[in-house]
């Protein structure tokens, strides 16, 4: 085995893992607190990427400022989805909300199609194109930036959940909605904020990967599926699990593509899901009950 190649694969893993974790945390947060399987997650990811394209390319604003706008846009859209679709159906069974989310997914994706056309958009970034070379490893500055921001956002999310009043209320809701309500937690507000936060994280992942790849209306589909895989790996509703799950998925994909077959890159995640469910149906790091 070629050591240089392995090191390069590991570097690629680390960089992709950050954004995968971001995607996974957003989805698992929404599921954990609201018991909603969010099929629009991938569309929020695409929305973030198009948001960045719109603000930085069409409006011509500063790249870094544009990323903030894209994330904020994702949060607003998420809050809207929650208010319009989920709030009236609070307490409905999980299948009903899933159908609603599937409907919303179809509407959002095709609206993107209609708004932007089907030809891929590419977003220029302000980073030099010469890579950073450390021994046998080359990394593009853009990807290093993406990784850095992703890690920052993950830390910020942990801080928000574990160290703030809002986070306290969210955790209380996660553990026991009824008791939390009795203790004076405004459940409706918590739900809206949770959905907005989760959507914002998905939009952030989209805005970060948009310039790395290209932006297309269907880019969200694979993102949704990968987020599902990450969340199953880590256990539904488990944030630490989703973080580690993101890196595991990136690792398995990269190694699978590098040493087994590049065609099965995207299959690795789903194969893991099936293996995990055979041996540990609630995910590797799960504490929640099996029947969700």
């Amino acid at each position: 085995m070629n050591v240089d190649q392995l090191l390069q694969h590991l570097a690629n893993t680390l960089i992709m893992g950050g954004t995968y974790a971001l995607l996974g945390i957003g989805l698992t947060l929404i599921f954990g607190i609201m018991r909603v399987v969010n099929f629009t997650h991938g569309e929020l990811y695409a929305f973030g990427a198009y948001g960045l394209y719109f603000v930085s390319v069409v409006l011509g604003m500063n790249f870094y400022v544009s990323i903030l706008f894209a994330i904020a846009g994702g949060m607003v859209l998420g809050a809207l989805i929650e208010l319009v679709l989920l709030r009236p159906k609070r307490g409905a069974d999980i299948d009903t909300t899933m159908l609603l989310m599937i409907g919303a997914w179809i509407v959002l994706q095709n609206t993107e199609h209609l708004a932007w056309g089907s030809i891929a958009k590419s977003i220029p970034s302000p980073f030099p194109t010469e890579p950073l070379v450390i021994g046998p490893i080359s990394l593009s500055w853009l990807r290093i930036f993406v990784f850095g921001v992703a890690i920052l956002l993950i830390i910020a999310t942990y801080f928000l959940i574990n160290r703030t009043r809002l986070g306290n209320a969210m955790r209380a809701t996660f553990q026991d909605t009824d008791t939390a309500a009795l203790m004076g937690v405004n459940i409706r507000a918590i739900y809206t904020m949770t959905f907005a936060l989760g959507s914002g994280l998905a939009a952030a992942a989209g805005a970060l990967l948009g310039p790395v790849f290209v932006v297309t209306p269907t880019m969200g589909d694979l993102a949704s599926l990968k987020a599902f895989a990450i969340v199953i790996l880590g256990g539904l509703g488990n944030i630490t699990g989703a973080t580690i799950g993101g890196f595991i998925l990136a690792f398995v994909e990269e190694i699978g593509a590098g040493y087994i077959s590049s065609g099965y890159r995207d299959a690795m995640g789903f194969l893991i899901i099936i293996v995990v469910l055979l041996f540990r149906p609630t995910g590797i790091f799960a504490r929640v009950e099996r029947i969700g």
């Binding site: 599921f31 399987v37 899933m98 599926l225 969340v231 099965y264 789903f270 899901i273 469910l277 609630t282």
Partner: peptide
């Protein structure tokens, strides 16, 4: 046999994953 070991959200995601695996196998 495999997927009825879980219910609800897990069941849904497992069934989607299964379909994706079949797609990727047919693709590759």
């Amino acid at each position: 046999k495999l997927s009825f070991r879980v219910r609800g959200a897990y069941f849904v995601i497992v069934t989607i994953s299964f379909a994706e695996v079949t797609r990727l196998v047919s693709l590759n």
